[in-house]
Amino acid sequence: MATNYLQNIDEAFLRRINYVIRFSIPDEEQRKAIWQGIFPAETPLDRELDYDFLARKLPVAGGNIKNMAITAAFLASDSSEAVGMKHILKAYQYELDKTNRAMTKDELAEYAFYFDEIHLL
C-alpha cells in the first residue's frame, strides 16, 4: 500500500502496519537526474528538452515525473512528434488536474508561449 496522505489512514489500521517508509520530494538536482534518465533510449526526444527548467519549476515527486513522462510520450506519439516541452508541460497540467490545481502562465516562465497550446492539446 502506498499513500501521500498518511493523515487520512485510520489510526487503528495504521497500528497494524509494521513498516512505514517516508519518501521525501526529490530536490532540484535529484529531479534533474530523474528527468534525464526517465525516457528509454529509443524514445524520440526533442533536442530542446530543458531539464534545468523541469527540475527547477516543476517541484514534483519521482512518481509524478514517471507519470508525466509516460503521458508526454503518448501525447507526442499521437501527434507523430518527438517528446518536447509542450508535451511534458501538458502532462504536468494533467498531474495538477488530479489535485484540482491549474497551471499559470507565470509558472511556465520562459515557456509561457505554450500556455494556450497546452490547454488545447
Rank of each mutant, 00 (worst) to 15 (best):
L14Y: 02
L75E: 12
Q7T: 12
L96I: 05
L45W: 04
N4M: 11
T99R: 14
I9K: 07
N4E: 11
F74H: 13
P44E: 14
I17Y: 06
G84H: 00
S77W: 01
N67M: 08
F23G: 02
D78F: 02
D46I: 02
I65Q: 01
V60T: 10
L49A: 09
F74T: 11
R47A: 15
A55Y: 00
Q7R: 12
L120K: 13
I21Q: 01
K66M: 14
A112L: 09
L120A: 14
A55I: 05
P44K: 15
I38L: 03
F53R: 01
Q30L: 08
K66D: 12
R15Q: 09
M1R: 01
R101W: 03
A112G: 04
L49F: 01
A73V: 09
Y94R: 11
L121W: 00
T99C: 07
P44V: 12
G37M: 07
Y19V: 15
H87M: 11
V20D: 06
Y5G: 05
V83R: 03
V20R: 13
D78L: 09
L49K: 01
K86R: 14
L75R: 10
V20S: 10
L58R: 02
H119K: 12
A61W: 00
Y92C: 03
E29Q: 13
A76N: 07
I34P: 00
M68S: 08
G63N: 14
L49V: 13
W35E: 05
L6D: 04
W35R: 05
K98M: 13
A91I: 09
T99G: 06
A102Y: 09
T104V: 13
L14F: 02
A109F: 07
D46M: 02
D106K: 15
S77A: 15
T99M: 12
Y111Q: 06
F23V: 14
G62V: 06
Q93M: 09
N18W: 03
G62I: 00
R101F: 08
A112C: 04
N8E: 15
I21P: 00
L49D: 08
I38C: 01
E48H: 10
I21E: 07
A76R: 07
D116L: 06
I65C: 04
E95Y: 03
G63H: 08
F13E: 04
K32I: 02
